[in-house]
Each structure stands twice: as structure tokens, then as C-alpha cells.
Write a protein that binds this DNA or RNA. Structure first.
Lengths: 133, 133
DNA sequence: GCTTGACCTAGAGTCGGCTCTACTTCGTAG
DNA sequence: CTACGAAGTAGAGCCGACTCTAGGTCAAGC
């Protein structure tokens, strides 16, 4: 289809799990590190680097980083060397939030597991009675 | 203000961290296990049990259970004994999802931590050079 | 008797993150 | 030469979970 290092939007969608719509949306939102190249007919041509970048963005999104903050980070990367401290700040802050999220989630998990245990015991006891009859 | 076992919506908001708006919204959405009692002037009067239930709902929400599913669970509880197996199913399913979420979040965390490490090293090396000059 | 503040209802508005629509343009296959 | 499929653009629409507005009641305090 395309040069073996150039991928169409559809192929990128397949490989990343994002929808074609989402890919265009992300681009419009400025969260692609490099301007996506265009092939004949104005079609987007993605490189492996674009995919790698997208995969990281997906991780950031999955862990709850809002699009505008991903954009800020992306812009720093686009600007090139010299702002590593700012990038580090964004990442560290996010890391902190993710850490908190995990703690919270663990608390929820503990409660849910406790309740599941209680119901399981109860359901088992009912089943045992039924068998005993 | 109120009888020492009856709490106003404002007090419940304080104790749970939910907004007054959210409390009314939750009630309208049917995720309160028992009909909230009303005091003089049609004001809501919450009991400690209502608060306990709300705290669990908050845990379920925090861990990503959608409101409609909390409602389903609530309805089962409201119906009383006999449907414990269905309640258990809902909780187990949710437990599974939370488990997956935690795994995903950990993956994200690993990547972020890796990147933070890289940037930290880089930033340190720059700082070292500056001192060395 | 007037203001304040906490509460009430019904329903509109907001926000984030996509998702979808409408319409166009290509390149290839039948 | 027509149809199809995959792409393009601009912009509207949707969904979930609140959040806020408008307009009203009521009790307490000045």
C-alpha cells in the first residue's frame, strides 16, 4: 500500500487501538510530537515514531492525564532541548496523581473484596442448607 | 439543629465530601438504599445508615462503576433477601474490572517512572556540568 | 417586617473526550 | 464509466456525571 515505513491512518488505528476519528482529533488537539506528514492526495502518513509517541500518549490518557496537559508536554518536546526540567515536572506531578489513584483504587478494591467475601459466604451457606435438606 | 441521629443534606455533604447537588442527584438517580426521610418543610433527613451506604457508593463510583449499575445494585438491596447471588455477580464483575484497571495503571506507572528516571538523570547530568565549570 | 441562609423542585447548562455526519476526493477493480 | 473503499475537512452531536439557575418555602435574628 504505502512505503513500508509509512502507515495510513487506518493502519495506525489498527495498531494503536485508537479510532480513525480519535487519531484526527488528537492531531487537531496538537498531541502529536511531529507534524504528521502528508502523502499524495493529502493523506496522512505516519511513521513508527508517531506510533511510539501515540502509545505513550495512550498511556498518559489511560492514567488520567487530560488532553490539554498532554498537549503542554508535547509542545515542550516539540520545542526541543532545554526544557527538560519542565517536562520532568509535568511527569512527576502526573506520577504523583497516578500514585494516589492507585492507593484509592486499592482501598476500593479492599472494600469490594470484603463484600464479595461476605456475599460468597452467605451464598455458600444457603447452598449448603439446600444440599442438607 | 436536628435530632442527633438525623442529619441535614448540608451535614451529609460535609461528612461525605459530596456536594449538596450531587446528593440530590444521587437520590433522583435512585442510588440511595432507603427512601430518604423528610422532616418539617420537606427537608431531607439522613441517618447514619444513609451515610454508610453513600460511602460505599462513593467507593464504587471512584473505582469506575457507572451510576446505572450502582442503581441496579441498590435496587437489589432494596428488594431485600433472596437476590444475594445477583448482588454477588455485580460485585464480582466490578472487582474484575477494578483488577484490570489496577494492572493497567501499574503499566502506565512503570512507563512514567521510567521516563521520570531518564529525565532526572539527564537533568542531574546537566546540573553536574554546570557545577563543574 | 425584612434579611439571611439553608433548604426545596424542575430543569437547563457544562465539560471532557471522543464520535458521528455530510459532503468531497482519490485510486483501483469490475 | 461506475462503483467502492479509504481517505480528507468542518463542524455538530453524544454521553456521563455532575453543576448550576431560577424561583420558592421557611425559621431565626436584627
Amino acid at each position: 500500500m504505502l512505503d513500508d515505513m509509512g502507515l495510513s491512518i487506518g493502519q495506525v488505528a489498527e495498531r494503536t487501538g485508537l479510532s480513525v476519528h480519535a487519531l484526527r482529533f488528537y492531531e487537531k488537539e496538537g498531541i502529536l510530537a511531529r507534524q504528521v506528514q502528508r502523502g499524495p492526495g493529502g493523506r496522512r502518513v505516519y511513521t513508527q515514531q508517531d506510533i511510539d509517541w501515540l502509545r505513550m500518549c495512550i498511556m498518559l490518557r489511560m492514567s488520567g492525564m487530560p488532553v490539554p496537559e498532554i498537549r503542554r508536554y508535547t509542545e515542550l518536546v516539540r520545542q526541543g532541548d532545554g526544557n527538560e526540567l519542565q517536562r520532568l515536572d509535568i511527569l512527576k506531578e502526573h506520577q504523583e496523581r497516578v500514585q494516589q489513584q492507585m492507593v484509592q483504587l486499592q482501598e476500593c478494591m479492599d472494600l469490594i473484596t470484603f463484600k464479595v467475601g461476605k456475599y460468597q459466604d452467605y451464598v455458600n451457606s444457603i447452598a449448603a442448607k439446600a444440599v442438607g435438606q
